[in-house]
Write a protein that binds this DNA or RNA. Sequence first.
DNA 1: GTAATAGTTGACTAAAAAAGTAGGTTATAA
DNA 2: TTATAACCTACTTTTTTAGTCAACTATTAC
Lengths: 161, 161
Amino acid sequence: MRLTTKGRYAVTAMLDLALSHERGPIRLAAISDRQGISLSYLEQLFAQLRRSELVSSVRGPGGGYRLGREAAAISVAQVIAAVNEDTDATRCGGAGDCQEGETCLTHHLWMDLSDQIHAFLGDISLNDLVARNEIKMISEQQQQRVAARADGDNQIQVTPV
Amino acid sequence: MRLTTKGRYAVTAMLDLALSHERGPIRLAAISDRQGISLSYLEQLFAQLRRSELVSSVRGPGGGYRLGREAAAISVAQVIAAVNEDTDATRCGGAGDCQEGETCLTHHLWMDLSDQIHAFLGDISLNDLVARNEIKMISEQQQQRVAARADGDNQIQVTPV
DNA sequence: GTAATAGTTGACTAAAAAAGTAGGTTATAA
DNA sequence: TTATAACCTACTTTTTTAGTCAACTATTAC
């Protein structure tokens, strides 16, 4: 079982996509700015997300990424699984051959825990997250911060959305 | 968030203690044999478990480890916490300063997940595990295997308990 | 008192994974 | 035809895991 920055980044990036998907394809550079994730790292993650068909891409100028299907049909568990973070808590991957081919003493405990985590993460869709008030507020603050930063850096007036 | 062999070993070893605690202090070497965990590694884990007062030790011949308090009063969550596996799913440890001092987009999601895992693992005591039938059966098989191994290796007749 | 037992401690190591970097290639819209 | 942005591969650094090793101390039994 591991849940690290990688899985968290993937979910955060997907949520960013979900929040702004009506604005057409979203550039990874924009996600990088808003979420503070390195562009190169995002590229790696999105390669995996694409293979799992959770996103689709548009190349060239004006291009970027879209959600592969509606936000209500993408669960947090699917996003985490796509970047190879296994939410399985057992050592044996559920096979029960944890200790020299036999079942280890705590196998059933980890199975139960895995089920819990799966049930929890599998039941939350990106749409559910988009609807949450805390998330809406954080998203707005992030957009303002990015706009302010562009303003200060380049003296370019950014048109508010 | 991480749950690895370390935490699993700790819980397994503590459960082994709980299963045989009426036989007096248990040597780590015996746990090592039954559970297939390296003795040196067990020593490290038990040093941490001792600091958290989850076990007490008896030195010298006939010595070993005992549970620090009754099995019903030790939760799986406490054991895992004792060996430094944090069941916290956030990056910030719950502080909410995940992204350059601000709260990241998915902070609340990971907080909720942490709560779920904590609630689940905190509610299961070693005693609960001891009472489970699958675990009783696995424990018996392990004892038989160890006895058979000693028999074959040394031609020593082991007195059954 | 001496030997055996069993916990106690700390330093060290190999392997794996995570996290991030760097540099180039390809498709496409303007 | 040029700028853009996805795509891809290889590499590096850092952290963590999962151990090993060696020496030390307390206690019991003879």
